[in-house]
């Protein structure tokens, strides 16, 4: 580690030096020019289309983008809002869809923090954790001098949030001139992006079971208990997948 020239130069100029921090922050912002960032922006085009079709106003959609950030949580919130769910039911559905953020943050911390990183800095930076920024950080951070990783990650996170807020504004402004078929196509982007990226990111086989269970159970619960269809599908489908996971594990241990 000590022979790393990047690390050395950062020590020479002092890691608390504002110019050094700014330079690494800006290097982080350059990650906007990458394949995952472009994919994310195209799914935000779809999200903006979904919001427009759901009668959500521009300022409300931009506000959601900045304060929630995670795409599935926003889509669940819009789904709950338009289906007439109460605030507690909507909050519970959004919270359930966002539980996965906790293990992601837990996994990121050892990569992100230096010996002198303050907790308040980590709390601020944790807000940028969502699938895309997290994947980028897990791939890149180990190459960055430890004391400057927070600056670099702040660059990645802030440029992603800012650029996608801008994407939302642009789609709203252009949408008046879109023919109807464009809205239909934009709406379809979000479920397809989730379907494919979620399948790829499933860590254990139970993740695939959970996905299939969720897809199959949703229409059933939608018919039986319309206001609680998302919640019930998540809990029952997740429990099915977890039981599968336990049986599979016990089976392996018995061998």
């Amino acid at each position: 580690m000590r022979d790393d020239p990047l690390l050395k130069s950062s020590f020479d100029s002092g890691p608390d030096d504002f110019a050094t921090r700014l330079r690494w922050f800006l290097r982080g912002t350059l990650k906007i020019f990458s394949v995952p960032a472009v994919l994310l922006m195209s799914s935000f085009v779809g999200f903006a289309g979904l919001a427009i079709e759901s009668d959500i106003k521009l300022d409300q959609t931009v506000f959601m983008t900045v304060v929630i950030w995670a795409l599935p949580a926003k889509v669940v919130l819009i789904g709950a809002a338009t289906s007439g769910a109460t605030l507690p039911a909507a909050a519970l559905a959004v919270a359930l869809s966002s539980v996965r953020l906790m293990p992601m943050v837990v996994a990121l911390l050892p990569e992100l923090q230096g010996p002198r990183t303050r907790r308040i800095t980590l709390l601020f930076l944790s807000h940028f954790v969502a699938v895309t920024a997290w994947v980028m950080a897990m791939e890149e951070l180990h190459k960055i001098p430890r004391d400057l990783r927070t600056s670099y990650f702040a660059g990645i996170g802030m440029v992603l949030v800012g650029a996608n807020a801008l994407v939302v504004v642009i789609v709203y402004m252009l949408s008046a001139s879109f023919p109807p078929i464009v809205f239909a196509a934009l709406f379809m982007l979000t479920p397809m992006y989730f379907l494919t990226s979620l399948w790829r990111s499933a860590r254990e086989k139970a993740g695939h079971i959970a996905m299939i269970a969720g897809l199959v159970l949703f229409p059933i619960f939608h018919g039986v208990a319309p206001g609680y269809d998302l919640l019930l599908t998540g809990l029952v489908g997740g429990a099915c997948a977890f039981i599968f996971h336990r049986i599979q594990r016990n089976h392996l241990e018995a061998k």
Binding site: V76, A93, V99, R100, F194, R203, A206, G214, T233, G237
Partner: peptide, 8 residues
């Protein structure tokens, strides 16, 4: 993770 995945 299972519950979160089924919900999405």
């Amino acid at each position: 993770r299972c519950v979160a995945t089924a919900l999405v």
